[in-house]
């Protein structure tokens, strides 16, 4: 038997994560994308809204690395600016949905009884609508627009997180260390703060990172069908919708925005997968 070295669960987590090179690479890509979005004004070679009627539908060239669209706007610049929109949709909606869902899940699982019944029936109702349909209903109510898409995606993320956190809370509630806390006389609020929340949080974070990817996809899809960001906006889904008419004529119009969505979503998903695997105790 070797002498045990002091390692915290968080340390173990990092140690396992470090061995997952693909996840780390995805993490670097995610970081890069976020930086590109933040520094879009500096990085974008052109004004994303500036039309150039001398350079319509040009293929990729040195002047326009990803070509130009039907108004002669530089596609690369539009993609760089569009990243801001997609990231906002993904991050804000996943975070908002996660926050509300986690709170509801904690309450539902901890209090139990009729609070649990009511909250879970509400979730059942939200679950009865296919996710994107619910988002479309919200957009139909509030009108098209990026902000409304964010809320729409957040709303249908809520029941997912609520269920997840409720399940974790209920199993933690049965854990002996929580019961041990009760026999000691630790108050409910403290048990929740010191023992349950830290136990549920890693799962929430992992799920959130996976959720960001699907939120970006849904946001782009809504824009693609005309319910999200409206035309002049350099949103990737809207750009794809725009490029549809030029299939076979100017394929780069649909190629680059689609690629951008794919890479961003893939990065978030791979990162989320890596986090989840590093978190689960069972080794591969």
């Amino acid at each position: 038997m070797t002498a045990p070295t002091i390692r915290s669960p968080a340390g173990e987590f990092w140690r396992r994560l470090r061995r997952r090179h693909t996840a780390l690479a995805a993490g670097v890509v995610v970081l890069l994308i976020i930086l590109i979005a933040i520094f879009a004004p500096v990085l974008a070679p052109y004004d994303p809204a500036a039309a150039d009627y001398d350079a319509l539908l040009q293929g990729p060239s040195l002047a326009h690395l990803a070509g130009t669209d039907s108004y002669g706007r530089d596609i690369l610049s539009r993609i760089i600016w569009g990243g801001r929109i997609s990231l906002t949709v993904g991050l804000v909606s996943a975070f908002a949905g996660g926050l509300v869902g986690t709170t509801l899940g904690l309450l539902s699982g901890w209090i139990g009884g009729w609070v649990d019944t009511v909250l879970m029936r509400l979730c059942d109702v939200l679950f009865a609508f296919p996710g994107i349909l619910l988002a479309i209903a919200v957009v139909a109510l509030l009108g098209p627009g990026v902000a409304n898409v964010v809320w729409a995606v957040a709303v249908f993320s809520v029941p997912v997180f609520a269920r997840l956190v409720r399940g974790t809370t209920m199993s933690l509630k049965q854990a002996q260390y929580i019961q041990a806390g009760r026999t000691i006389g630790v108050s409910g609020a403290k048990l929740m703060l010191y023992h349950i929340l830290p136990g549920a949080l890693p799962v929430v974070i992992v799920y959130m990172s996976l959720r960001i990817g699907s939120a970006i996809l849904v946001g782009a899809a809504l824009s693609f069908i005309g319910l999200g960001a409206q035309p002049p906006s350099p949103e990737w889904g809207a750009m794809l919708a725009d490029g549809r008419s030029y299939l076979g004529v100017a394929d780069h119009l649909t190629l680059f925005p689609g690629l951008a969505i794919f890479i961003v979503v893939l990065s978030f998903n791979v990162l989320g997968d890596g986090l989840r695997d590093a978190l689960s105790q069972r080794l591969q």
Binding site: S8, P9, A175, Y177, A180, H195
Partner: peptide, 8 residues
């Protein structure tokens, strides 16, 4: 083991 919070 399960009577002690693994994170603390």
């Amino acid at each position: 083991y399960s009577a002690l919070d693994p994170r603390l």
